[in-house]
């Protein structure tokens, strides 16, 4: 199972380190990573394999979300199927 982690907000030093460190701690393997600026947002997108997650999906998602809140970043973890459904026929 794969999930998409998105980080949206203002740019600052160490965002990738922060998020990837937390992913490693919880057993999420980063498969791909990209960063871009679209409209008014800075956005980082990671595709992670969560097959070997050491915690529940809900906990993984909640932990990253809280981590983001501390730095005024919107961090979301979403199952990749929502994107596949919406954008691929």
């Amino acid at each position: 199972m794969k999930a998409v982690v998105t980080v949206i907000g203002a740019d600052s030093v160490g965002i990738i380190a922060l998020v990837s460190g937390e992913c490693a701690r919880m057993g999420a393997n980063i498969l791909d990573i990209s960063q871009s600026v679209m409209r008014e947002y800075f956005a980082m997108i990671m595709l992670v394999d969560i097959q070997e997650l050491t915690t529940s999906f809900a906990d993984f998602s909640e932990t990253l979300h809280k981590l983001g809140e501390e730095r005024s970043l919107d961090i979301r973890v979403m199952h990749e199927d929502i994107f596949n459904s919406m954008h691929r026929i």
Partner: peptide, 16 residues
């Protein structure tokens, strides 16, 4: 990997 613009479009739909 999924297209970045597509991912951001989906997120923008939900967020904004």
């Amino acid at each position: 990997m999924l297209n970045t613009a597509d991912i951001l479009e989906t997120i923008n739909m939900i967020r904004a």
